[in-house]
């Protein structure tokens, strides 16, 4: 089974500076393999080991996603090889565009049975990209996957749905996005990090991929820093819990919220 893990190299927005005019200064951000993506790496590795398959890491984005650190961070998490599309034309790309490029790269890789993704990315946190990518490929896309195992015809997939845990018989090719706690990912050890340096990396040129052109143009009319972040904390010292509690209750009563 040939498995592609689509992951993101991104900063936690918590570390970014938002200027008063609402524009974002990304300089202080420390990009990393997005928080929940190691879950997808782990699911992929286990499935590949059971089926005698291959795990290919795939990420797309601006040129800055391709650094030695970024390559090593991904390759030390159970991948057999890595494929990148790193082009500044993709800086700030929306989910539809990223999904279109991922889909084109999956087609270029060829013979892929399964694309696995994490719950949602640390920077955008919407979980949209894998589902849009499935549609770009013309495949079924399922989110909230808690377990995947090989089955006679394809895969047996468990999902967390509003009605309960659904068990599905799924034919490949398919795109699956895991829940944040589907499996506990292994921690990369020194051996994995050393081995990462020897694994193959392929960089695909964006221009060489068959990516549909975006149809919608977005004109930015303005940016803003959201309100609600400007609370001024009045702190009480809890080393005397009874006194802190009565002061707090007093304050809440005067604020009219109790």
């Amino acid at each position: 089974m040939k498995i592609v893990v689509a992951y993101k190299w991104a900063p936690n927005p918590q570390d970014l500076e938002v200027r008063a005019d609402g524009t974002v200064d990304e300089a202080r951000g420390k990009p990393a393999v997005s928080e929940y993506d190691p879950v997808a790496f782990e699911l992929a590795r286990r499935l590949a080991d059971e089926t005698g398959g291959e795990v290919v890491g795939l990420t797309v984005g601006a040129a800055a996603i391709d650094t030695p650190l970024a390559r090593k961070a991904a390759l030390s998490r159970g991948l057999d090889r890595l494929v990148l599309v790193a082009d500044d034309a993709l800086a700030g790309a929306d989910s539809t565009r990223l999904a279109a490029v991922l889909a084109a790269a999956v087609r270029a890789i060829g013979g892929v049975d399964l694309v696995l993704a994490g719950d949602s990315s640390v920077d955008v946190a919407e979980g949209q990209v894998p589902l849009t990518a499935a549609a770009q490929l013309g495949w079924l896309g399922l989110g909230r996957v808690t377990a995947v195992t090989p089955a006679a015809e394809g895969l047996s997939v468990e999902r967390d749905t509003p009605a309960g845990v659904a068990v599905l018989a799924v034919r490949t090719p398919v795109v699956l996005a895991a829940t944040a706690d589907a499996v506990v990912p292994r921690v990369a050890g020194m051996k994995d990090i050393l081995a990462a340096a020897k694994k193959p990396v392929e960089v695909l040129a964006l221009a060489a991929l068959d990516v549909p052109a975006p149809a919608v143009t977005l004109a930015t009319l303005g940016t803003a820093k959201p309100s609600g972040g400007d609370r001024r904390a009045v702190l009480f010292d809890g080393s005397d819990p009874a006194s802190a509690a009565s002061q707090l209750v007093g304050a809440l009563r005067s604020a009219g919220v109790l």
Partner: peptide
């Protein structure tokens, strides 16, 4: 960006 900023687009 996870809610750190707002943007208005046409």
């Amino acid at each position: 960006m996870g809610g750190i900023a707002e943007r208005t687009v046409a």
